[in-house]
């Protein structure tokens, strides 16, 4: 339908822009916002895997990124419960 390079360069742009957004985006003082911003490079990386036909890697990455988000959210919630300043 489209040139496969469209998906590749869209993925590249999402990875770079998403990583900048995670480092110095608006509102990244709040760790929840920062965790949500990490999803942007994750989507970009999924598009890059898609252009290379890495099916199993893509499926495992989707599962792994979900687990990583859960671990990070658990860390945030537990640290807040302990009363640490974030």
């Amino acid at each position: 339908m489209f040139d496969p390079q469209i998906w590749f360069y869209t993925g590249c742009a999402l990875v770079v822009i998403g990583s900048i957004a995670t480092v110095t985006g608006p509102g990244v003082k709040d760790p929840i916002v920062r965790i949500l911003n990490t999803e942007i490079p994750a989507v970009g990386l999924s598009l890059i895997f898609l252009t290379y036909n890495h099916t199993i890697a893509l499926l495992t990455y989707i599962a792994a990124t979900t687990i990583i988000t859960l671990i990070l959210l658990r860390a945030v919630v537990r640290l807040e419960e302990m009363g640490a300043e974030l």
Binding site: V15, G44, I48, L72, V76, L79
Partner: peptide
């Protein structure tokens, strides 16, 4: 905690 979240970005770079 922010440094921990940013290691995720470094992991993405490695995977690319």
């Amino acid at each position: 905690l922010s440094a921990l979240i940013l290691t995720d970005i470094v992991g993405v770079a490695m995977l690319v």
